[in-house]
Structures are given as C-alpha cells and as structure tokens.
Design a protein around this nucleic acid. Sequence first.
DNA 1: AAGGCCATGTAACAAGTTACATGATTAA
DNA 2: TTAATCATGTAACTTGTTACATGGCCTT
Lengths: 182, 182
Amino acid sequence: MERQAVSELNPTAASLLGFLHAGALSGYDLVGVAQLFIGDFWTLTRSQVYRELKALAERGLVEAGEAGPRARRPYRLTEAGRSAFAEWVAQPPGTEQIRYPLLLTISFGSWLGPKRLLELVAEHRGLHEERLRSYLALDADATVEHEPYQRATLAFGIHYERAVLAWMDELPGILTRSGPGA
Amino acid sequence: MERQAVSELNPTAASLLGFLHAGALSGYDLVGVAQLFIGDFWTLTRSQVYRELKALAERGLVEAGEAGPRARRPYRLTEAGRSAFAEWVAQPPGTEQIRYPLLLTISFGSWLGPKRLLELVAEHRGLHEERLRSYLALDADATVEHEPYQRATLAFGIHYERAVLAWMDELPGILTRSGPGA
DNA sequence: AAGGCCATGTAACAAGTTACATGATTAA
DNA sequence: TTAATCATGTAACTTGTTACATGGCCTT
C-alpha cells in the first residue's frame, strides 16, 4: 500500500515548507504569511497549519524550536524539508477547483425568479469591485517591489475579477427573458 | 449550542434535494445529474452523495424506497425536504472558493524559473481551451432548450475560461523580465 | 493591578477523497 | 456459461471548519 512514496506532500504542507525557507516561523506567523501571499487562491486555516506542522515535524521535514512567550513555537526547515519542497515544486500542478455558491443558487433560480437573483448578484458585485480595486492598486504600486511571480498571480486575480464583473453585467439580459419571476 | 437551528443544510445536501424535485433518484443517478448541472462549479463525489442521502433520510428530508436491481435504492423527497430546500434556496449564498495549484506553483516560481513555469502553463492551456470550446458549443446549441438559469451559469464558465486564457497569454511578458531561469 | 484584548494553540466535528467490495448485465 | 464490464454502494482516511482554551500584553 505504500503509505508515502518518498515524500508526498499536500499543497498546503508544501507551501508551509516554501515559506519557511525565509527563516523560522511560528504557526501563527505562517498563517499570516500564507494568507498574504497565497490566500487569494488557496484557502487555509490556522488549525490546518498547526496540524500540518505537527505532521511535518514527525516526518523530520521541520524542527520545532523552544517555545517563546505565549507558547509561541518557531519551526525551522530541515535539510529533508528543503529537498521535499524542491521535489514538490517541480511536480506538475493539478487542475483548479472552484466552489461558487452563488452559481448553485442561480442553478436553482426557478425557485426564486430573476428579480431576487439579480438582487443577490448585486450584493456580491460590491465585493468583486473591491477586490479588483485592491488588486489594481497593488499592481500599480511601484514602491512594492513585486517579483514577477507575484505579479503573475496578481494578474490572474485581475483577470478573474474582471470576468466576474463582466458576467454579472450581462446577467440581467440573460435572466429577464421568458417572464419576470417572484 | 443548538446543533441544527431548524434545517441547516450544506450546499451539497441542498442541491440533492433540489434535484429530487424532478422525481425519485438513486445515489448513483444523483451523482450523474449533479455532475452535469453543477459539476463545473461545485465538486462532489459519490461517497459524499451517499453520506448526505443517509443523513437526509435520518432527518426525514428524503425517504428511501425499496432496493431495485444491483442494490439500487431510489430516494424520494418528503414534504419536510421540500420546505427545507425552499428555505435554503432563499438564503443569500456565501462567497466563492478557488483553489488553484498552478497559482501556488507560480508563487514559488523562483525555484523553477520562467521557462519551466511557462511549460507548465502551456500544458494547462489545452484544458481551458477545450472547456471553452465545449461551453461555446453548448451555448450555441439551440436544440438544447436551456432555461435562462442554465444559460446564466454557462455564461460564467465562458467568461471564466476566457479570462484564464487571456491571463495565460500575458504570462510570458510578465515572467520574462529580470533574467531567464533554469 | 484589574480588565480587556490579542497572540497562540488545541480539540471536536464536518466535508471531501481514495480505495475497495459486490452483484447485474453483456458479450464472447 | 464464463469472463469482462459496469452500476451501485461502503469503509477508511485526509483535509477543512468551527468552536473553544489559555495566558501574555497593554491600557487605564
């Protein structure tokens, strides 16, 4: 059954190893860093991070240092961790996953009717506008030295948010044919 | 603590109830229907479906009929299930979740360099082209009577795939400044 | 020096995935 | 009529989420 070929890593764990290249960090810090750098397209929570750190420590890919104030425990990358990460990052990434509850609701839109649906969409629209604005600001901000890789992921966000907004803009036309609902 | 207010439903379970409005279906059938109608923006697996059906049956929201051939057990919506669904569908949907491993890899792109990254992107590109093609075909196909709600979700897919492709097209420009890698 | 807030972590539960099991059909 | 295939489901494990616990830090 081979529980673990050589060093199978899930993407979340691998990302943690990636961030630890910059120096030892506590679980709490890692959550912050991860949310900042990959949070827009890779959700993770604190509990996950702590669990992964514990598992990584058991596998010898990280080492916990002595606890500081507030039980803060810094984790340091080991050599094994370094090479496990290198192995992971070289692998072809899998396909994306999207879970969009608004689309579900629209799928079952016949229970609500176009009017109510468009209200719901309008509520979401603001969020997407705001995200786009913040992405564009980041993109324009020359003082933040983005390395090209961050620019690349940022560009994705910009394209994505624009697509969502464009889609929302054409929804009234799609939904209001064949009789108004509710 | 209130384990379950009146009829808390997760979106997956709610969708199953939604599909059961059209008549009794087995778990297997439900997987098929769901994959067809919402599979592009809401992943679900067989095991999940069976588990949810069992849970829904325990809560009286569906009823299992007698097993047919191959242990096929059809589930029928109850009145309670009907109203639980109605309640769910009326609620404002949550925000979307995206998990895109390719973006993760790009985030850690400094370990690979632009050349290798662009190869990875090229591999993914085909998939997105194909999805876009199939969406456009569906959209153009007038023989398939789409109700507007399906058109609406389809339109999302089209915008999304176009955005991904456009993003991929501008990646070489973003990544190849500041020295070629690998 | 007391009260409230915030950093840090854990535990319990829910949802998602992978691998396996079994019995009907179908085709050779 | 046996072997192959496929429909249907279950079990075991991994990942993700929510709620809670604790104790240092800051403010008054």
